[in-house]
Simulated scan of single mutants.
Amino acid sequence: MSTQHQVNQQQYQDKSQAYLTSTVHAQGIEFQKMQQLIQSHQIKTVLDLGCGGGHVSYQVAPFVDHVTAYDLTPSMVELVAEQAKQKGLVNIAAQQGVAELLPFADQSFDCIISRYSAHHWQNVAQAMAEMYRVVAQQGKVIIVDILGNSNPVMDTFFQTIETIRDPSHVRNYSLREWAGFAEYAGFTVETVEKQHLDLEFQSWTERMQTPEYAVQTIRDLQRKTSDQTRQYYQIQTDGSFRSEVAYLVLTRP
């Protein structure tokens, strides 16, 4: 029997290079927001939780004393360590592990950043409790992730195509769900912003090496969905679409 963690590792073990070079992951207006927050709060230590190709780590390292790049997939961790060395970012340390059980002492970090990772986590509530434990008092947590939808029809459509494309997908959560996770863990929700992410269909599927039959299933679902759903996600004739993204800042009181 495979655990969700094993499914995730299997999906991503040979995709580190694709995520390093992915334009979607390498760019984003959220990086400037992160840098501004780090500078305004004089943050010194950062945990990049679910670091993937390491883009958050590379963006924030010049502004802090130390970054821990942490990911479930060993090949991602190896890639970030190698890239940090090549970029001369000597203050980045890479470490492998799961989000739900962080191997760090209480209040180890001034700030935790998780970008496009949480929708793969096995247990977000448990991971949030761990984040609360390892972030300092008055410390910040920044979450950037694809949003689920409060409309059941649209949400089912989106979660379905995500899972067909990538079997390690667990769930995109709505803003209401995120607020619930944060408040239950003890955080104060400081900032809630929405962004948009345009996803070019071919690169979106190629990045995950989605099999052709699965690609065709997604395209079939896109063609058969309602006009309302098609318009909301701005589905194009080639399958490209737009999704909503949450940018959240939480504070540990």
Rank of each mutant, 00 (worst) to 15 (best):
N8I: 11
Q10D: 13
Y12V: 04
Q13W: 09
S16V: 11
Q17S: 15
Y19A: 11
L20H: 13
V24C: 05
A26P: 07
A26D: 00
G28Q: 10
I29T: 12
Q32G: 12
Q32F: 04
Q32S: 14
M34P: 00
M34F: 13
Q39L: 15
S40L: 07
H41W: 06
K44I: 04
K44R: 14
K44T: 12
D48K: 08
V56T: 13
Y58Q: 10
Y58C: 08
Q59C: 14
P62R: 15
D65F: 03
T68V: 15
T68I: 13
A69L: 01
Y70V: 04
D71F: 03
P74W: 00
P74V: 01
S75W: 08
M76A: 03
A81V: 01
E82S: 15
Q83D: 09
A84I: 08
K85N: 09
K85D: 02
K87H: 13
N91Q: 12
I92E: 10
A93T: 14
Q96G: 02
G97T: 06
F104S: 08
D106T: 13
S108Y: 05
F109L: 03
I112S: 00
S114H: 04
R115H: 02
S117H: 05
H119C: 06
H119G: 01
H119V: 08
H120T: 08
Q122G: 06
N123T: 02
V124W: 04
V124K: 05
A127H: 05
A127K: 04
M128P: 10
A129R: 14
E130Y: 11
G139H: 06
V144I: 15
D145E: 09
N151I: 08
D155A: 02
F158Y: 12
Q159C: 05
Q159K: 08
I161G: 03
E162P: 06
R165A: 06
P167S: 11
H169Y: 03
Y173H: 15
S174E: 03
L175G: 09
E177K: 10
W178S: 01
A182K: 06
E183L: 07
Y184H: 15
E190F: 02
T191H: 05
V192A: 14
K194F: 02
H196Q: 12
H196I: 13
H196L: 08
L197H: 02
D198G: 09
D198M: 01
E200H: 10
F201A: 01
Q202W: 00
S203E: 14
W204E: 03
E206N: 13
R207I: 12
M208N: 12
A214N: 12
V215G: 06
V215N: 08
V215H: 09
Q216G: 00
I218A: 05
D220C: 04
L221N: 04
Q222I: 08
R223Y: 12
D227Y: 05
Q228P: 00
Q231I: 11
Y233N: 04
I235N: 02
Q236L: 09
T237G: 00
D238V: 09
S240C: 07
L248Q: 04
L248K: 04
L250S: 05
T251G: 08
